[in-house]
Amino acid sequence: MIKLQNISKNYRMGEVEICALCGVDLDVASGDLIAIMGPSGSGKSTLMNVLGCLDRPTSGRYLFEDREISAMSDDELAHVRNAKIGFVFQSFNLLPRFTALKNVEMPLVYSGVSSQARTERAVPVMEKVGLGDRMYHKPTELSGGQQQRVAIARALVNNPPLLLADEPTGNLDSRSGAEILNILVNLHQQGVTIIIVTHDPNIAARCKRIITLKDGGIISNETVP
């Protein structure tokens, strides 16, 4: 599904250039459930942003479903983000002015789905993450765990084949975190390819594969027995 070849991401800090990613090679098969671990500053978020087409690598090739991402225009990248990839952030990133339901509908707005069809598609996804009774709440009226479930519903509403979650439980207590993890594992069983960045070995233990980063490079890539 995904093929990264020699991907680097460099940041210029005054005179010196530091690489947040230094020549990463990675293959992700369809239906995989991957945990990415590693110390702070090792490049996990940078890798996720590149995978999520939010950031362009400085060099290297990125193939997504056999299409060359590095050669795409801004508009084409926007389309990939809209239709192919769901992104879940550590800090939820919901729009505070809108209700939970409207937040979940938002990606469909940019797919050109009509208002009525949007609601028809968003409501079942809300129910799937267990928020059928919180649809008209604003994000500020929801708990952290509920907000993260709204964010997951938003990531799923367009049925993307790939779900990226950058420390999705990092801001949550262990109980809410466990709920989120259950939802993700469930999704994986339904065939969605999932990549989770986490510091929590318990979460990693439930994944099929654990990739460890250090100083912008992959130091281990092992299948969980």
Binding site: D74, R81, N82, N93, P107, Y110
Partner: peptide, 16 residues
């Protein structure tokens, strides 16, 4: 700006 970032992350094009 954050709202713009979020909208872009979920598929808004520059022209949107």
């Amino acid at each position: 700006i954050r709202e713009i970032g979020i909208r872009k992350a979920i598929g808004a094009r520059n022209r949107d």
